[in-house]
């Protein structure tokens, strides 16, 4: 564990707490892409299949349980209590391409052809693009609530900081894995426009609006 990974994990934790707070406070899931939330649920379930077979630490297990449980809770609540508060007509990104693309990528690029390893790799590739339905929806509406922008910033910073963690681990431990590195880079590039608007507008107290 190093400071980049710890802060990254805490940013990830914070992002989910901010999202739960947004939904509770505004009593609405408006502006949140259900499809992105569904993809994150698939990402965490497929990545943490080793939950019961591979013990790392209490920290590791607690975080895994939290990420699976919270993403499941959000997907469930968006379909139940908050079903009427968000508009599926705005959430039109075709996630079949992302699900299929990640499957093809993990079948071609993986380190071991085993059940757990393939699902882990699938989750890595899928996470890289899971934000696309959310970004697509925001590009259609052209704006986002400030709390939603904070949520997305924390979520994007999490994987961005993991990229820094991988560079640091390579320098200090000689540890290197190019699949998560490349996927993390892809995700960070996809976030570039969002980060630009976040830093230039939201952090200066203005509303998140696309030019």
């Amino acid at each position: 564990m190093n400071v980049f990974r710890l802060v990254a994990d805490l940013m990830h934790l914070a992002s989910i707490l901010i999202l739960l707070l947004k939904i509770r406070k505004t009593r609405s899931a408006a502006g949140i892409s259900f499809k992105s939330q569904l993809l994150y649920l698939i990402v965490f379930v497929t990545r943490y299949l080793d939950l019961f077979t591979h013990w790392v630490s209490l920290y590791n297990t607690a975080m895994k349980v939290f990420f699976i449980a919270s993403s499941g809770y959000i997907v469930y609540q968006m379909q139940r209590r908050y079903r009427a508060t968000w508009d599926p007509a705005l959430d039109t990104f075709r996630i079949e391409f992302l699900l299929g693309g990640a499957a093809v990528m993990s079948l071609i690029f993986h380190t071991k052809f085993t059940f757990l390893e393939l699902f882990w790799t699938y989750s890595i590739w899928l996470e890289a693009v899971a934000i696309l339905p959310q970004l697509f929806q925001m590009s259609r509406t052209g704006e986002a609530e400030t709390i939603t922008a904070h949520y997305l910033f924390a979520l994007g910073a999490y994987r961005g900081l993991y990229v820094v963690n991988w560079i640091y681990r390579y320098a200090t431990e000689g540890y290197w894995e190019w699949i998560p590195f490349l996927a993390g880079m892809v995700q960070t590039v996809l976030y570039a426009d969002f980060f630009y608007v976040y830093f230039s507008r939201v952090m200066r107290g203005k509303k998140f609006e696309l030019p």
């Binding site: 994990d9 990830h12 080793d50 790392v56 630490s57 993991y162 540890y175 894995e177 998560p180």
Partner: peptide, 10 residues
Amino acid sequence: ASVAGGKDEL
């Protein structure tokens, strides 16, 4: 201790 294959990460 680090685990091979990055499985100590989240």
